[in-house]
Amino acid sequence: MALLGILLFLMIIGAVIAVETRNLLSSIVCLGAIGFLLSIVFLFLGAPDLAITQLVVEILCLVILIRATIHRRVETVAGNREFVGLAVTVVMLAIVLMLAISMMAGFPSLGTSVLDRMAQAPSHFYLLQGKAQTGVTNIVTAILLDFRAYDTLGEATVLFCAVMGALAVLRRSARRRPEEGDAGDEGEGGAE
């Protein structure tokens, strides 16, 4: 448990650096560090599926962010907004944090999952019947693709739509750019 605390503390340090540093590239690298630490935390929490996914997703995330920003003469957008606003923001966020932590008072302590507290929890059913009903030994996969496959279909659709959205956002200019000259003016006129 102490190890978990240390890892989380490192993640928070990384988050503060990622948010506060001037250089965009080091900010992205800090985000990567947070992601990899999160992957280790998942491993400690008994979630190897999540650890693997987080690891590869983090790599791809870094590649995409760096590709998008690195050549763009990263002008360090210095400073925050004005000081009074910043102070008010910090105070408000501190209040939000205090409220969230005080809400945690009624929360069951860490390490007692719903499996221990409720005999009727759906996870009991999944763990007991997962192998028998789906023939799969990885219960996470059994939940993901059998008991709750409807959800997963929706998630796959969301993923697809997000990527199609990215395509749609980038499409027009990407088409227009290579010709640059006359075709560009046409595209400009058609769009505005």
């Binding site: 590869v56 997703v57 990885n138 996969t141």
Partner: peptide, 13 residues
């Protein structure tokens, strides 16, 4: 992915 950690999401990435 059904007998060990992993699966469509991780493998796809």
């Amino acid at each position: 992915g059904h007998v060990s950690p992993g699966g469509g999401f991780a493998g796809g990435v």
